[in-house]
């Protein structure tokens, strides 16, 4: 990984995206729950103090207030850690946000997603948030891979009137995208073409999938790589094309293999083009450690993704 100079955490994109939305005329109001120094929401508050509130350690109240603001026409953003948002306030998201009038205009931006939150240990490591968020009927759910993708994704959901959940991460990660990148809600990005297998990833696992494709290429295996940043609605066309054209699919996510990206992709293929699949994720609770150490501890590595690809390919008929 040689792009350390451009490394930035996806969570750092949040205030930039909010400021951009306001500058584009979106009537943003943002709320934090005593974690704004970590979600970076405070930076938006410094720029637009009249548009930013902090409610103390009270995620349920935060969701309700956001729903009220949205009911009055505001685009309400709320931020916390992915273990607390949606975990601590799921019922409020369901009753006060998802159900009224087909879904109120509330955007959750949950930082510190997945196990790369690191040293804080298992209680802080969200591996259920995508399952919860995707289960809320009108919600869009996005897991960006780098700073630029996160910024554009937050801007994109900010321009819809639907509720949304965007998961960002704590550690600084290398850039995946250059200046020409354009995020499109609901569309996968083909990062590498290939014919033998497709690696579908989101978030920090996009980088791992790209490196896995390199490993596979050394063995003569041609792997396509899709950044499926939008987990819901998943890009059905890209998934179907991948199955038709490569015949095997691996999903990779920093989340349980149930209820997240793997489930979404498998559902599309079960209905359309069933092909051998393998699922890379985290199906156990964790421990403390540095974020990159934890990626190895949980086996969220390029080697594991490559092994999953070989395994899926071996089941082709």
């Amino acid at each position: 990984m040689t792009q350390a100079a451009s490394a930035a955490a996806t969570r750092e994109a949040y205030p930039y995206a909010l400021i951009e939305l306001v500058e584009q005329g979106v009537d943003v109001v943002a709320i934090d729950a005593d974690l704004s120094v970590s979600t970076m929401g405070y930076q938006f508050g410094e720029k637009y103090p009249e548009r930013w509130y902090t409610v103390g350690v009270a995620e349920q109240n935060m969701v309700g207030i956001a729903a009220g603001l949205a009911a009055c026409g505001k685009t309400a953003f709320i931020a916390s850690f992915a273990v607390f948002l949606p975990g601590r306030c799921f019922d409020q998201l369901r009753t006060s946000v998802a159900q009224p009038r087909g879904g109120l205009n509330v955007k959750c931006v949950a930082s510190h997603g997945g196990i790369t939150v690191g040293e804080d240990g298992m209680s802080a490591q969200a591996i259920e948030d995508l399952a919860l968020a995707t289960s809320l009927v009108p919600f869009d759910v996005v897991v960006p891979a780098d700073f630029e993708s996160a910024k554009q994704a937050i801007v994109a959901v900010g321009k819809t009137t639907r509720p949304a959940y965007v998961r960002t991460g704590r550690p600084k990660v290398p850039a995946v995208y250059g200046p020409d990148y354009r995020f499109e809600l609901g569309k996968a990005t083909v990062l590498r073409t290939g014919t033998d297998v497709t690696l579908v990833a989101c978030g920090v696992m996009v980088r791992a999938a790209l490196e896995a494709a390199e490993l596979l290429a050394g063995e003569g295996v041609s792997a396509r790589v899709l950044d499926m940043a939008t987990v819901k609605p998943v890009d059905r066309e890209s998934v179907i094309a991948a199955a038709r054209e490569t015949g095997a699919v691996v999903t990779a996510e920093e989340h349980q293999t149930t209820g997240g990206l793997g489930t979404a992709v498998a559902r599309v293929l079960a209905e359309t083009v069933p092909v051998p699949m393998s699922f890379v994720g985290v199906d156990r609770y964790g421990t403390s450690g540095k974020w990159d150490e934890l990626l190895t501890y949980f086996d969220l590595t390029p080697a594991r993704v490559a092994a999953a690809a070989r395994e899926a390919i071996s089941r082709k008929r």
């Binding site: 969701v63 309700g64 207030i65 729903a67 009220g68 009911a71 009753t95 006060s96």
Partner: peptide
Amino acid sequence: SMKALPGVEMSGGSLGQGLSFAIGHALAG
């Protein structure tokens, strides 16, 4: 069910959520 009928301001049924919702309206106001 919010807006299913004229005058219904909030979806309800899960207790404890109304005061928060009102704060959001009040801040917007």
